[in-house]
Design a protein around this nucleic acid. Structure first.
Lengths: 270, 270
DNA sequence: CAGTGGTCTAGACCACTGG
DNA sequence: CAGTGGTCTAGACCACTGC
Protein backbone atom coordinates (compact mmCIF):
# COMPACT_ATOMS: atom_id res chain seq x y z
CA UNK A 1 0.00 0.00 0.00
CA UNK A 2 2.86 2.33 -0.71
CA UNK A 3 2.12 4.63 -3.59
CA UNK A 4 4.48 6.79 -5.55
CA UNK A 5 3.29 9.74 -3.52
CA UNK A 6 5.80 11.63 -1.43
CA UNK A 7 4.01 11.02 1.80
CA UNK A 8 5.30 8.40 4.13
CA UNK A 9 3.02 6.10 6.03
CA UNK A 10 3.60 4.62 9.41
CA UNK A 11 5.70 1.45 9.53
CA UNK A 12 6.64 1.89 5.90
CA UNK A 13 10.23 2.62 5.11
CA UNK A 14 11.10 5.51 2.78
CA UNK A 15 11.87 2.86 0.16
CA UNK A 16 15.59 3.44 0.23
CA UNK A 17 18.13 4.01 2.94
CA UNK A 18 20.92 2.67 0.88
CA UNK A 19 24.51 3.62 1.05
CA UNK A 20 24.93 6.63 3.17
CA UNK A 21 23.21 9.89 3.93
CA UNK A 22 20.67 11.92 2.08
CA UNK A 23 19.34 8.84 0.36
CA UNK A 24 15.78 9.31 1.45
CA UNK A 25 13.46 8.59 -1.44
CA UNK A 26 10.81 10.82 -0.02
CA UNK A 27 11.76 13.79 -2.09
CA UNK A 28 9.25 14.65 -4.72
CA UNK A 29 9.63 16.93 -7.68
CA UNK A 30 8.34 20.38 -8.32
CA UNK A 31 4.72 20.50 -7.29
CA UNK A 32 3.93 20.69 -3.58
CA UNK A 33 7.19 19.62 -2.10
CA UNK A 34 6.78 18.78 1.56
CA UNK A 35 9.82 18.01 3.69
CA UNK A 36 9.95 14.81 5.68
CA UNK A 37 9.73 16.50 9.05
CA UNK A 38 6.50 18.19 8.00
CA UNK A 39 5.01 14.82 7.16
CA UNK A 40 6.17 13.48 10.53
CA UNK A 41 4.59 16.49 12.13
CA UNK A 42 1.27 15.66 10.51
CA UNK A 43 1.51 12.06 11.71
CA UNK A 44 2.17 13.18 15.28
CA UNK A 45 -0.68 15.65 14.98
CA UNK A 46 -3.00 12.87 13.90
CA UNK A 47 -2.01 10.77 16.88
CA UNK A 48 -2.68 13.70 19.17
CA UNK A 49 -6.03 14.36 17.57
CA UNK A 50 -6.99 10.69 17.72
CA UNK A 51 -6.24 10.72 21.41
CA UNK A 52 -3.46 8.16 21.17
CA UNK A 53 -1.60 10.23 23.76
CA UNK A 54 -3.70 11.97 26.38
CA UNK A 55 -3.10 15.51 27.64
CA UNK A 56 -0.26 15.69 30.17
CA UNK A 57 0.92 12.21 29.21
CA UNK A 58 4.34 11.58 27.68
CA UNK A 59 4.66 10.76 24.01
CA UNK A 60 7.24 8.20 22.89
CA UNK A 61 10.87 9.25 23.03
CA UNK A 62 12.53 10.77 19.99
CA UNK A 63 14.41 7.55 19.37
CA UNK A 64 11.22 5.51 19.50
CA UNK A 65 9.43 7.83 17.12
CA UNK A 66 12.43 7.85 14.80
CA UNK A 67 12.29 4.05 14.67
CA UNK A 68 8.55 4.04 14.21
CA UNK A 69 8.62 6.50 11.32
CA UNK A 70 11.87 5.12 9.91
CA UNK A 71 13.62 8.46 9.92
CA UNK A 72 16.55 9.86 11.84
CA UNK A 73 16.21 11.34 15.29
CA UNK A 74 17.03 14.78 13.92
CA UNK A 75 14.02 14.69 11.65
CA UNK A 76 11.47 13.82 14.33
CA UNK A 77 13.28 16.32 16.49
CA UNK A 78 12.52 19.12 14.05
CA UNK A 79 8.89 18.03 13.86
CA UNK A 80 8.57 18.03 17.64
CA UNK A 81 10.34 21.38 17.81
CA UNK A 82 7.63 22.99 15.72
CA UNK A 83 4.82 21.33 17.65
CA UNK A 84 6.39 22.54 20.87
CA UNK A 85 6.65 26.05 19.42
CA UNK A 86 2.92 25.88 18.71
CA UNK A 87 2.27 24.88 22.32
CA UNK A 88 0.90 21.48 21.39
CA UNK A 89 3.76 19.64 23.07
CA UNK A 90 6.00 20.47 26.00
CA UNK A 91 9.62 19.31 26.14
CA UNK A 92 11.24 18.53 29.45
CA UNK A 93 14.90 17.70 29.33
CA UNK A 94 15.73 14.43 30.99
CA UNK A 95 12.09 13.46 31.32
CA UNK A 96 10.44 13.37 27.93
CA UNK A 97 8.00 15.19 25.68
CA UNK A 98 4.46 15.68 26.94
CA UNK A 99 1.11 16.59 25.49
CA UNK A 100 0.30 20.17 26.46
CA UNK A 101 -2.73 20.76 28.64
CA UNK A 102 -4.70 23.67 30.03
CA UNK A 103 -4.66 22.06 33.46
CA UNK A 104 -1.48 21.94 35.54
CA UNK A 105 -0.27 25.07 33.81
CA UNK A 106 1.86 27.70 35.45
CA UNK A 107 -0.62 30.42 34.58
CA UNK A 108 -4.15 29.51 35.45
CA UNK A 109 -5.68 30.94 32.30
CA UNK A 110 -3.54 30.52 29.26
CA UNK A 111 -5.67 32.63 26.94
CA UNK A 112 -6.67 35.34 29.42
CA UNK A 113 -4.64 38.49 28.85
CA UNK A 114 -6.11 40.57 31.66
CA UNK A 115 -3.74 41.57 34.44
CA UNK A 116 -4.15 43.68 37.57
CA UNK A 117 -2.68 47.18 37.54
CA UNK A 118 -0.70 46.25 40.62
CA UNK A 119 1.50 43.87 38.67
CA UNK A 120 1.08 41.45 41.54
CA UNK A 121 -0.54 38.45 39.91
CA UNK A 122 -1.11 36.50 43.08
CA UNK A 123 -2.07 39.24 45.47
CA UNK A 124 -5.65 39.17 44.30
CA UNK A 125 -5.70 35.40 44.44
CA UNK A 126 -7.55 33.12 42.08
CA UNK A 127 -10.65 34.32 40.28
CA UNK A 128 -14.04 33.66 41.83
CA UNK A 129 -16.32 32.17 39.21
CA UNK A 130 -20.05 32.50 39.12
CA UNK A 131 -22.08 30.61 36.54
CA UNK A 132 -25.09 32.78 35.77
CA UNK A 133 -26.68 30.58 33.19
CA UNK A 134 -26.17 27.51 31.01
CA UNK A 135 -28.78 26.57 28.47
CA UNK A 136 -29.30 25.00 25.07
CA UNK A 137 -30.38 27.31 22.28
CA UNK A 138 -30.68 27.24 18.52
CA UNK A 139 -27.69 28.91 16.92
CA UNK A 140 -28.44 32.32 15.45
CA UNK A 141 -26.67 33.37 12.29
CA UNK A 142 -23.59 34.98 13.81
CA UNK A 143 -22.94 32.14 16.25
CA UNK A 144 -23.45 29.49 13.57
CA UNK A 145 -21.01 31.23 11.27
CA UNK A 146 -18.38 31.55 13.97
CA UNK A 147 -18.68 27.88 14.96
CA UNK A 148 -18.92 26.67 11.37
CA UNK A 149 -22.22 24.88 12.02
CA UNK A 150 -25.62 25.16 10.41
CA UNK A 151 -28.04 27.87 11.38
CA UNK A 152 -30.46 26.68 14.06
CA UNK A 153 -28.30 23.81 15.23
CA UNK A 154 -28.23 23.21 18.96
CA UNK A 155 -25.57 25.11 20.87
CA UNK A 156 -24.81 25.52 24.54
CA UNK A 157 -24.87 29.06 25.82
CA UNK A 158 -23.11 29.86 29.07
CA UNK A 159 -22.98 33.12 30.95
CA UNK A 160 -20.62 33.68 33.82
CA UNK A 161 -18.95 36.38 35.88
CA UNK A 162 -15.35 36.33 37.03
CA UNK A 163 -14.43 38.35 40.09
CA UNK A 164 -11.01 39.33 41.32
CA UNK A 165 -10.61 40.35 44.95
CA UNK A 166 -14.39 40.18 45.28
CA UNK A 167 -14.85 42.72 42.46
CA UNK A 168 -16.82 41.54 39.42
CA UNK A 169 -14.41 42.15 36.57
CA UNK A 170 -15.33 39.95 33.63
CA UNK A 171 -18.74 39.14 32.19
CA UNK A 172 -18.60 36.39 29.62
CA UNK A 173 -21.10 34.80 27.27
CA UNK A 174 -19.87 31.74 25.48
CA UNK A 175 -21.28 29.38 22.92
CA UNK A 176 -20.26 25.77 22.33
CA UNK A 177 -21.41 23.39 19.63
CA UNK A 178 -24.00 21.04 21.12
CA UNK A 179 -22.71 17.73 19.84
CA UNK A 180 -19.17 17.62 21.26
CA UNK A 181 -20.34 19.10 24.55
CA UNK A 182 -23.39 16.94 25.11
CA UNK A 183 -24.01 16.64 28.82
CA UNK A 184 -22.44 19.92 29.90
CA UNK A 185 -24.54 21.59 32.58
CA UNK A 186 -24.28 24.52 34.95
CA UNK A 187 -23.81 22.03 37.77
CA UNK A 188 -20.79 20.41 36.16
CA UNK A 189 -19.32 23.82 35.43
CA UNK A 190 -19.78 24.85 39.05
CA UNK A 191 -18.42 21.57 40.37
CA UNK A 192 -15.21 21.78 38.39
CA UNK A 193 -12.31 23.64 39.94
CA UNK A 194 -9.78 24.79 37.40
CA UNK A 195 -9.75 26.42 34.00
CA UNK A 196 -12.81 25.77 31.87
CA UNK A 197 -10.58 24.65 29.01
CA UNK A 198 -9.14 21.98 31.30
CA UNK A 199 -12.64 20.67 31.92
CA UNK A 200 -13.23 20.59 28.18
CA UNK A 201 -10.14 18.42 27.82
CA UNK A 202 -10.83 15.92 30.54
CA UNK A 203 -14.60 15.67 30.24
CA UNK A 204 -15.18 16.13 26.53
CA UNK A 205 -11.85 15.43 24.89
CA UNK A 206 -11.77 18.85 23.27
CA UNK A 207 -8.38 20.57 23.34
CA UNK A 208 -8.31 24.28 22.55
CA UNK A 209 -5.14 24.89 20.66
CA UNK A 210 -5.23 28.53 19.62
CA UNK A 211 -7.62 31.45 19.56
CA UNK A 212 -8.25 34.79 17.89
CA UNK A 213 -9.63 37.84 19.59
CA UNK A 214 -11.32 40.97 18.28
CA UNK A 215 -11.20 43.80 20.77
CA UNK A 216 -13.35 46.90 20.96
CA UNK A 217 -14.40 49.53 23.47
CA UNK A 218 -18.05 49.95 24.36
CA UNK A 219 -20.46 51.20 26.99
CA UNK A 220 -22.47 48.56 28.84
CA UNK A 221 -26.24 48.22 28.72
CA UNK A 222 -28.42 48.09 31.83
CA UNK A 223 -28.19 44.33 32.28
CA UNK A 224 -24.42 44.34 31.92
CA UNK A 225 -24.16 47.19 34.40
CA UNK A 226 -26.11 45.18 36.94
CA UNK A 227 -24.05 42.03 36.52
CA UNK A 228 -20.75 43.87 36.84
CA UNK A 229 -21.99 46.33 39.46
CA UNK A 230 -20.91 49.35 37.47
CA UNK A 231 -22.64 52.40 36.06
CA UNK A 232 -23.43 52.97 32.43
CA UNK A 233 -20.58 55.47 32.04
CA UNK A 234 -17.88 52.89 32.67
CA UNK A 235 -16.42 51.94 29.28
CA UNK A 236 -15.54 48.27 28.92
CA UNK A 237 -13.30 46.19 26.76
CA UNK A 238 -15.30 43.96 24.46
CA UNK A 239 -13.29 40.84 23.69
CA UNK A 240 -14.72 38.42 21.13
CA UNK A 241 -12.72 35.23 21.09
CA UNK A 242 -12.94 32.30 18.73
CA UNK A 243 -11.08 29.26 20.04
CA UNK A 244 -9.91 26.43 17.78
CA UNK A 245 -9.08 22.76 18.25
CA UNK A 246 -6.85 20.76 15.94
CA UNK A 247 -7.30 21.35 12.24
CA UNK A 248 -8.36 24.93 12.90
CA UNK A 249 -11.87 23.78 13.73
CA UNK A 250 -13.67 26.48 15.75
CA UNK A 251 -15.11 25.03 18.96
CA UNK A 252 -16.02 28.04 21.03
CA UNK A 253 -17.19 31.59 20.59
CA UNK A 254 -16.78 33.77 23.64
CA UNK A 255 -17.86 37.34 24.13
CA UNK A 256 -16.28 38.93 27.16
CA UNK A 257 -16.64 42.34 28.76
CA UNK A 258 -13.64 43.36 30.80
CA UNK A 259 -13.44 46.13 33.36
CA UNK A 260 -10.24 48.05 32.74
CA UNK A 261 -10.19 50.49 35.61
CA UNK A 262 -8.28 48.08 37.84
CA UNK A 263 -6.94 45.71 35.20
CA UNK A 264 -5.49 45.98 31.73
CA UNK A 265 -5.25 43.77 28.67
CA UNK A 266 -1.64 42.96 27.92
CA UNK A 267 -0.27 42.15 24.51
CA UNK A 268 3.23 41.46 23.26
CA UNK A 269 4.19 42.52 19.72
CA UNK A 270 7.06 40.72 18.03
CA UNK B 1 43.12 37.36 25.39
CA UNK B 2 41.28 34.11 25.62
CA UNK B 3 40.20 33.32 29.12
CA UNK B 4 39.01 30.05 30.56
CA UNK B 5 35.48 31.35 30.18
CA UNK B 6 33.06 29.38 28.06
CA UNK B 7 32.41 32.22 25.69
CA UNK B 8 34.00 32.13 22.32
CA UNK B 9 35.45 35.22 20.72
CA UNK B 10 35.55 36.04 17.07
CA UNK B 11 38.46 34.58 15.10
CA UNK B 12 39.42 32.41 18.05
CA UNK B 13 39.05 28.70 17.66
CA UNK B 14 37.21 26.73 20.34
CA UNK B 15 40.63 25.49 21.47
CA UNK B 16 40.09 21.97 20.21
CA UNK B 17 38.58 20.51 17.11
CA UNK B 18 40.63 17.40 17.38
CA UNK B 19 39.67 13.98 16.26
CA UNK B 20 36.05 13.93 15.27
CA UNK B 21 32.77 15.34 16.34
CA UNK B 22 31.52 16.80 19.55
CA UNK B 23 35.04 17.85 20.41
CA UNK B 24 34.21 21.49 20.94
CA UNK B 25 35.93 22.68 24.09
CA UNK B 26 33.31 25.32 24.67
CA UNK B 27 31.31 23.26 27.09
CA UNK B 28 31.55 24.54 30.60
CA UNK B 29 30.53 22.83 33.79
CA UNK B 30 27.60 23.32 36.05
CA UNK B 31 27.04 27.03 36.54
CA UNK B 32 25.50 29.00 33.70
CA UNK B 33 25.92 26.62 30.82
CA UNK B 34 25.35 28.37 27.54
CA UNK B 35 25.29 26.40 24.32
CA UNK B 36 27.50 27.42 21.45
CA UNK B 37 24.67 28.55 19.21
CA UNK B 38 23.49 30.94 21.91
CA UNK B 39 26.93 32.49 22.01
CA UNK B 40 26.91 32.78 18.22
CA UNK B 41 23.51 34.39 18.48
CA UNK B 42 24.87 37.01 20.83
CA UNK B 43 27.77 37.71 18.47
CA UNK B 44 25.41 38.17 15.54
CA UNK B 45 23.20 40.36 17.71
CA UNK B 46 26.19 42.53 18.55
CA UNK B 47 27.04 42.93 14.89
CA UNK B 48 23.44 43.92 14.19
CA UNK B 49 23.44 46.39 17.04
CA UNK B 50 26.77 47.83 16.01
CA UNK B 51 25.36 48.43 12.56
CA UNK B 52 27.86 46.13 10.84
CA UNK B 53 24.96 45.02 8.62
CA UNK B 54 22.36 47.64 7.74
CA UNK B 55 18.60 47.01 7.67
CA UNK B 56 17.48 45.21 4.50
CA UNK B 57 21.07 44.27 3.67
CA UNK B 58 22.24 40.68 3.48
CA UNK B 59 24.38 39.24 6.24
CA UNK B 60 27.19 36.83 5.35
CA UNK B 61 26.18 33.35 4.23
CA UNK B 62 25.90 30.55 6.76
CA UNK B 63 29.12 29.04 5.48
CA UNK B 64 30.95 32.35 5.86
CA UNK B 65 29.70 32.84 9.38
CA UNK B 66 30.56 29.26 10.26
CA UNK B 67 34.12 29.87 9.11
CA UNK B 68 34.31 33.20 10.90
CA UNK B 69 33.10 31.76 14.20
CA UNK B 70 34.93 28.47 13.73
CA UNK B 71 31.82 26.37 14.21
CA UNK B 72 29.80 24.13 11.94
CA UNK B 73 27.13 25.43 9.60
CA UNK B 74 24.46 23.71 11.68
CA UNK B 75 25.39 25.73 14.72
CA UNK B 76 25.19 29.15 13.06
CA UNK B 77 22.04 27.85 11.41
CA UNK B 78 20.38 27.31 14.75
CA UNK B 79 21.48 30.76 15.91
CA UNK B 80 20.04 32.38 12.78
CA UNK B 81 16.87 30.32 13.13
CA UNK B 82 16.16 31.87 16.49
CA UNK B 83 16.98 35.38 15.31
CA UNK B 84 14.63 34.86 12.37
CA UNK B 85 11.92 33.62 14.74
CA UNK B 86 12.35 36.86 16.69
CA UNK B 87 11.92 38.86 13.48
CA UNK B 88 15.41 40.27 13.61
CA UNK B 89 16.50 38.48 10.46
CA UNK B 90 14.63 37.30 7.40
CA UNK B 91 15.68 34.18 5.52
CA UNK B 92 15.14 33.94 1.79
CA UNK B 93 15.97 30.62 0.21
CA UNK B 94 18.38 30.87 -2.65
CA UNK B 95 19.16 34.51 -1.89
CA UNK B 96 20.50 34.85 1.61
CA UNK B 97 19.65 36.08 5.08
CA UNK B 98 18.72 39.74 5.51
CA UNK B 99 18.41 42.21 8.33
CA UNK B 100 14.74 42.78 9.02
CA UNK B 101 13.36 46.25 8.52
CA UNK B 102 10.16 48.17 9.08
CA UNK B 103 10.36 49.56 5.57
CA UNK B 104 9.68 47.39 2.53
CA UNK B 105 7.42 45.19 4.60
CA UNK B 106 4.35 43.42 3.34
CA UNK B 107 2.17 45.00 5.99
CA UNK B 108 2.67 48.71 6.24
CA UNK B 109 2.54 48.85 10.03
CA UNK B 110 4.08 45.85 11.69
CA UNK B 111 3.00 46.75 15.21
CA UNK B 112 -0.45 48.13 14.39
CA UNK B 113 -3.15 45.63 15.24
CA UNK B 114 -6.13 47.67 14.11
CA UNK B 115 -8.12 46.31 11.17
CA UNK B 116 -11.26 47.49 9.38
CA UNK B 117 -14.50 45.62 10.08
CA UNK B 118 -14.79 45.00 6.37
CA UNK B 119 -11.86 42.60 6.37
CA UNK B 120 -10.68 44.35 3.23
CA UNK B 121 -7.28 45.71 4.19
CA UNK B 122 -6.68 47.62 1.01
CA UNK B 123 -10.14 48.95 0.29
CA UNK B 124 -9.61 51.85 2.63
CA UNK B 125 -6.19 52.47 1.19
CA UNK B 126 -3.17 53.71 3.09
CA UNK B 127 -3.60 55.79 6.23
CA UNK B 128 -3.55 59.55 5.95
CA UNK B 129 -1.19 60.95 8.53
CA UNK B 130 -1.44 64.34 10.14
CA UNK B 131 1.27 65.57 12.46
CA UNK B 132 -0.42 67.80 15.01
CA UNK B 133 2.59 68.66 17.07
CA UNK B 134 6.25 67.84 17.67
CA UNK B 135 8.09 69.49 20.51
CA UNK B 136 10.82 69.02 23.09
CA UNK B 137 9.71 68.71 26.69
CA UNK B 138 11.20 67.67 30.02
CA UNK B 139 10.24 64.10 30.84
CA UNK B 140 7.64 63.82 33.57
CA UNK B 141 7.86 60.92 35.96
CA UNK B 142 5.80 58.35 34.06
CA UNK B 143 7.50 59.03 30.73
CA UNK B 144 10.95 58.94 32.29
CA UNK B 145 10.23 55.64 33.94
CA UNK B 146 8.89 54.09 30.76
CA UNK B 147 11.91 55.23 28.74
CA UNK B 148 14.39 54.37 31.48
CA UNK B 149 15.80 57.89 31.54
CA UNK B 150 16.16 60.44 34.30
CA UNK B 151 13.29 62.64 35.34
CA UNK B 152 13.39 65.97 33.56
CA UNK B 153 15.60 64.80 30.72
CA UNK B 154 14.76 66.11 27.28
CA UNK B 155 12.29 64.05 25.30
CA UNK B 156 10.52 64.58 22.02
CA UNK B 157 6.75 64.60 22.17
CA UNK B 158 4.78 64.00 19.00
CA UNK B 159 1.06 64.09 18.48
CA UNK B 160 -0.55 62.84 15.32
CA UNK B 161 -3.82 61.63 13.86
CA UNK B 162 -4.22 58.71 11.49
CA UNK B 163 -7.25 58.64 9.23
CA UNK B 164 -8.63 55.77 7.23
CA UNK B 165 -10.95 56.51 4.33
CA UNK B 166 -10.90 60.16 5.40
CA UNK B 167 -12.19 59.24 8.89
CA UNK B 168 -9.95 60.19 11.82
CA UNK B 169 -9.44 56.87 13.58
CA UNK B 170 -6.30 57.00 15.68
CA UNK B 171 -4.98 59.77 17.91
CA UNK B 172 -1.47 59.12 19.10
CA UNK B 173 0.89 60.83 21.50
CA UNK B 174 4.38 59.50 21.50
CA UNK B 175 7.55 60.23 23.41
CA UNK B 176 11.10 59.58 22.27
CA UNK B 177 14.34 60.03 24.21
CA UNK B 178 15.97 63.29 23.08
CA UNK B 179 19.51 62.09 22.52
CA UNK B 180 19.06 59.33 19.93
CA UNK B 181 16.47 61.35 18.07
CA UNK B 182 18.28 64.68 17.98
CA UNK B 183 17.15 66.61 14.94
CA UNK B 184 13.71 65.06 14.56
CA UNK B 185 11.15 67.72 13.65
CA UNK B 186 7.54 67.88 12.54
CA UNK B 187 8.79 68.79 9.07
CA UNK B 188 10.90 65.66 8.75
CA UNK B 189 8.01 63.56 10.00
CA UNK B 190 5.69 65.12 7.43
CA UNK B 191 8.23 64.79 4.64
CA UNK B 192 8.78 61.07 5.20
CA UNK B 193 6.45 58.69 3.44
CA UNK B 194 6.32 55.31 5.06
CA UNK B 195 6.11 53.83 8.54
CA UNK B 196 7.53 56.02 11.29
CA UNK B 197 9.64 53.13 12.51
CA UNK B 198 11.23 52.96 9.08
CA UNK B 199 12.22 56.60 9.40
CA UNK B 200 13.71 55.85 12.81
CA UNK B 201 15.84 53.16 11.20
CA UNK B 202 17.13 55.11 8.24
CA UNK B 203 17.49 58.53 9.84
CA UNK B 204 18.47 57.70 13.40
CA UNK B 205 19.73 54.13 13.31
CA UNK B 206 17.16 53.02 15.86
CA UNK B 207 15.53 49.68 15.11
CA UNK B 208 12.39 48.81 17.06
CA UNK B 209 12.52 45.11 17.69
CA UNK B 210 9.54 44.32 19.88
CA UNK B 211 6.85 46.12 21.85
CA UNK B 212 4.40 45.64 24.69
CA UNK B 213 0.92 47.09 24.82
CA UNK B 214 -1.47 47.76 27.68
CA UNK B 215 -5.03 48.12 26.49
CA UNK B 216 -7.96 49.74 28.23
CA UNK B 217 -11.34 51.22 27.39
CA UNK B 218 -12.06 54.85 28.14
CA UNK B 219 -14.20 57.83 27.24
CA UNK B 220 -12.44 60.70 25.47
CA UNK B 221 -12.07 64.19 26.89
CA UNK B 222 -13.13 67.30 24.99
CA UNK B 223 -9.81 67.82 23.21
CA UNK B 224 -9.69 64.19 22.09
CA UNK B 225 -13.27 64.41 20.85
CA UNK B 226 -12.36 67.39 18.72
CA UNK B 227 -9.28 65.78 17.20
CA UNK B 228 -11.12 62.59 16.33
CA UNK B 229 -14.38 64.31 15.41
CA UNK B 230 -16.45 62.18 17.77
CA UNK B 231 -18.74 62.87 20.69
CA UNK B 232 -17.90 62.25 24.31
CA UNK B 233 -20.06 59.13 24.45
CA UNK B 234 -17.92 57.20 21.98
CA UNK B 235 -15.77 54.80 24.01
CA UNK B 236 -12.22 54.37 22.70
CA UNK B 237 -9.49 51.82 22.99
CA UNK B 238 -6.54 53.19 24.93
CA UNK B 239 -3.38 51.48 23.74
CA UNK B 240 -0.18 52.25 25.61
CA UNK B 241 2.81 50.85 23.79
CA UNK B 242 6.40 50.63 24.87
CA UNK B 243 8.73 49.80 21.99
CA UNK B 244 12.17 48.32 22.50
CA UNK B 245 15.41 48.22 20.51
CA UNK B 246 18.11 45.64 20.96
CA UNK B 247 18.97 44.67 24.52
CA UNK B 248 15.42 45.37 25.59
CA UNK B 249 16.18 49.06 25.80
CA UNK B 250 12.92 51.06 25.68
CA UNK B 251 13.04 53.72 22.97
CA UNK B 252 9.49 54.88 22.59
CA UNK B 253 6.36 55.31 24.64
CA UNK B 254 3.19 55.70 22.62
CA UNK B 255 -0.30 56.36 23.85
CA UNK B 256 -2.92 55.73 21.23
CA UNK B 257 -6.66 56.17 21.18
CA UNK B 258 -8.41 53.95 18.65
CA UNK B 259 -11.92 54.27 17.34
CA UNK B 260 -13.47 50.82 17.35
CA UNK B 261 -16.83 51.44 15.73
CA UNK B 262 -15.43 50.80 12.27
CA UNK B 263 -12.24 48.95 13.19
CA UNK B 264 -11.20 46.34 15.70
CA UNK B 265 -8.00 45.38 17.46
CA UNK B 266 -6.96 41.88 16.46
CA UNK B 267 -4.93 39.54 18.59
CA UNK B 268 -3.83 35.95 18.11
CA UNK B 269 -3.46 33.69 21.13
CA UNK B 270 -1.17 30.69 20.88
C1' DC C 1 23.15 4.27 36.30
C1' DA C 2 20.09 4.22 32.19
C1' DG C 3 17.03 7.03 29.64
C1' DT C 4 15.55 11.41 27.91
C1' DG C 5 16.08 15.67 25.58
C1' DG C 6 19.88 19.10 23.97
C1' DT C 7 24.09 20.27 21.41
C1' DC C 8 27.50 19.79 17.84
C1' DT C 9 29.71 18.06 13.81
C1' DA C 10 30.59 16.56 8.99
C1' DG C 11 28.90 15.54 4.88
C1' DA C 12 25.53 14.72 1.23
C1' DC C 13 21.93 16.19 -1.44
C1' DC C 14 17.59 19.10 -2.64
C1' DA C 15 15.14 23.50 -3.80
C1' DC C 16 15.41 28.12 -5.08
C1' DT C 17 17.55 32.37 -7.07
C1' DG C 18 20.04 34.94 -10.23
C1' DG C 19 23.40 35.79 -13.71
C1' DC D 1 25.76 27.36 -13.53
C1' DA D 2 27.39 28.70 -8.88
C1' DG D 3 25.76 30.23 -4.55
C1' DT D 4 22.34 30.42 -1.03
C1' DG D 5 19.26 28.50 2.30
C1' DG D 6 16.71 23.94 3.43
C1' DT D 7 16.57 18.98 4.51
C1' DC D 8 18.37 14.67 6.11
C1' DT D 9 21.48 11.47 8.17
C1' DA D 10 24.70 9.18 11.47
C1' DG D 11 27.19 9.47 15.26
C1' DA D 12 29.28 11.47 19.36
C1' DC D 13 28.87 13.64 23.52
C1' DC D 14 26.61 16.80 27.20
C1' DA D 15 22.98 18.05 30.67
C1' DC D 16 19.20 16.71 33.25
C1' DT D 17 15.99 13.46 35.67
C1' DG D 18 14.88 9.74 38.51
C1' DC D 19 15.59 5.16 40.17
Amino acid sequence: MNTASPSISESTAPASAETGSGGSAVFNSTPAFSPLYQQIKVLILQSLQAGEWKPSAAIPSEMDLAARFKVSQGTVRKAIDELAAENLLVRRQGKGTFVATHAEQQVQYRFLRLFPDSGDLQSEGPAQRQIIDCKRVRAPADIARALAIRLGESVLQVRRVLSFAATPTILEDLWLPGAPFKGLTAERLRAYHGPMYALFETEFGVRMVRAEEKIRALLPDAEQCALLAINSQTPLLSVERTAFTYNDAPMELRRGLYRTDTHYYRNALN
